[in-house]
Amino acid sequence: MELPAPTRRLVLIVDDDSLLREYLAEVVGHAGHEVLQAASSAAALRLIEQHGAAIALALLDIEMPGMSGLELACLLRQETTVPFMFLSASDDGATARGAAEAGAVGYVVKPIDAGPLLAAFEAALARADDIRQLRRSEASLSSALAAGRETSIAVGVLMARFHIDRHQAFDVLREHARSQRRKLGEVAEQILATEEGLGGLHGEIGERIRSRARP
């Protein structure tokens, strides 16, 4: 059976070494991704302003003239949602800790071979996707809870009844509303209206929770 083609992603490579930058672009491009290149942090910021959240991952050289990769990373973390990984000539613990504290989703030490680079790159992409999904879930959860007191209380009821955490309870409530083609608030009101209303949902919601727990 033929495997599906990998998803094409937009990747930003930031490095003042033109030869290394071209090599990285070639490796990432051959893996099926679209590449943007920047020779400095200032150029990278201009590209990020143009492409924004379409950039799936930025590969940042730590040591660059002017604004360093670490300084650029701080800006990205504070002002954008673009995830990033670092390229570094140093493998010392302090530099690695600095990268982790900056919020990097990956770290590759130069000189860079194609195999290890792609492995680290794909792992960083997966980690970035996880973070992006969590942000979407949290934003959706916060929005729903802010929209109505009933939803917030209903989430608490499901947490207590089924011994699940806040995110699981909200996801179950949302999926049930979608399956019934009803608004989230309406389902929440039904749960809160009477114990009988919750009892009517017990079997379906319980099955949703059990299916999530199955391997």
Score class of each variant (00 low, 15 high):
M1F: 11
E2S: 09
P4W: 06
P4T: 03
L12T: 00
V14E: 01
D15C: 02
D15F: 08
S18Q: 12
S18F: 12
L19D: 13
V27L: 07
H33N: 09
V35S: 04
A42W: 11
A42H: 13
A44H: 04
G52H: 01
G52L: 00
A56S: 12
A58E: 05
L60T: 01
D61H: 02
D61N: 08
E63C: 05
E63Y: 10
M64N: 03
L70Q: 05
L72W: 05
R77P: 01
Q78A: 07
P83W: 02
S88M: 02
A89E: 09
G93V: 08
A94E: 14
T95N: 11
A96G: 01
R97W: 08
E101H: 11
P111T: 10
P111S: 09
P111H: 11
I112Q: 02
D113P: 00
A114H: 03
A114Q: 11
L117C: 08
F121T: 05
F121I: 02
R132L: 12
Q133W: 07
S140W: 11
L145A: 11
A147Q: 11
T151K: 13
T151D: 12
T151F: 08
G156F: 10
A160K: 13
F162C: 09
H163L: 09
I164V: 15
A169D: 05
F170W: 14
R178H: 13
S179D: 07
S179A: 15
E195H: 13
E195K: 13
E196C: 06
G200E: 12
E204P: 04
G206N: 14
I209V: 15
R212Y: 11
A213N: 05
